[in-house]
Computed example of a mutant assay.
Amino acid sequence: MWLPLALLTALFESGKDIFGKKGLLAGADPYVMAWAWRLLALPFLLPLLLLPQALPEQLGPAFWPALLAGSVLNILAAILYMKAISQSDLSLCVPLVTFTPLFLLLTSPLLLAEVPSPGGILGVVLIVSGAYLLNLSRLSSGWREPIRALFHAPGARLMLGVALIWSLTANIDKIGLQNSSPLLWAAAINAAIALGMLPLVAMRRRQVEARYCLPWRWLVLVGLCGGLTTLCQMLAISLTQVPYVIAVKRLSILFTALAGLLLLREQGLRERLAGTLVMLAGVILLALA
């Protein structure tokens, strides 16, 4: 069941990206949008704790340290993420999160002693390699140009930082799950992030209140998709290795890139679709590994 859950994670992750971009274009502050991502997920997650066996008999000793570390890192990642998509096209900056599986090849063996199979490693590398094709038209200026074009785009470096942080938090999620339950961890991590961001948002609102608005429709949709993403991801990584789930989750870039190109009229349809299709091949290889 891990693969269908991971695919649903990708679908809801893409919805969060699209609705987040819509909200930012409508005038939302990136800090407020990042906060809504976690806060408004709670009404959809908390009722699930009433389900049978949603709560563990007891919490493991690593639950609270994992919750503290995961919430701090995810606060930083959420802010960087919303700033990145506010500065760049979705179809260009969002694919950079495919570097998370590459980073996971280093962090998972260190934190969880999980070593992917050779086929799994090849699938992850293929997904990340697809990012090179996103600016293939720059190849005529040299083989480095597609890479340079990515990292020189506004918001690209921010998204690379997000990918690095998420390679750590994905493993922390696994530790949190092992010391609680998927439903409890999904609710707890979102609540901790929302609570931790509250002082930042309050200070930010006073500073920029005159410049930004609150497009509630997009905020609520971001929260819904964020909550469902977290839930499906936690269930999936409780069933298999973290790098596999995160690699399949990155399939969201295909949905997001298509939405950006077709709905938001972003440029570079051919090359950006080529890159996402290579990443899709990597996902299929991972599923068969």
Rank of each mutant, 00 (worst) to 15 (best):
F44L: 15
L251K: 06
L8A: 15
V283E: 01
V283D: 01
P52R: 00
E13N: 12
Y244D: 06
A191T: 13
M234D: 12
V208T: 15
F151P: 08
A28L: 05
F151H: 00
R270K: 15
G223D: 09
S238V: 11
F44S: 13
L285D: 10
G260R: 00
F63W: 11
Y132V: 08
L39H: 14
A153S: 15
R38E: 05
I127A: 03
S181Y: 03
V208N: 14
R144K: 13
N135K: 12
Q207V: 01
L8E: 06
A54C: 12
S108C: 04
N179R: 08
W166T: 04
V208G: 10
T98C: 12
A236Q: 00
A6R: 09
A186Q: 10
L96Y: 02
T230C: 01
T98E: 03
A187N: 03
F99G: 03
L228N: 01
W218I: 04
E13D: 05
S88F: 11
G119W: 07
L68S: 05
V72R: 02
L96C: 00
L224Y: 08
L263G: 11
L24N: 09
P95C: 08
W143Y: 09
K21V: 02
L110F: 14
M279N: 09
L133G: 12
L104W: 11
L48R: 08
L92E: 05
G282Y: 07
A289W: 07
S129D: 10
K83E: 05
L168A: 02
I237Y: 01
L49M: 07
F151L: 15
S238Q: 14
S86A: 14
R204I: 11
V220Q: 02
I85F: 02
L288K: 14
A113H: 13
P101W: 12
P199M: 01
L5H: 10
W216C: 00
R148P: 08
R217C: 06
A69T: 04
K22M: 14
S129R: 14
A54L: 11
C213P: 07
G130W: 06
L254T: 12
I284S: 06
I79W: 14
P109S: 08
L110W: 14
L25E: 13
P95R: 11
N74M: 05
P4Y: 00
G155V: 10
L134G: 09
M1N: 01
W2Q: 01
L73C: 10
I237F: 02
Q267P: 06
D89P: 04
P116R: 02
L112Y: 06
L164E: 04
L5E: 12
A194R: 10
I121F: 03
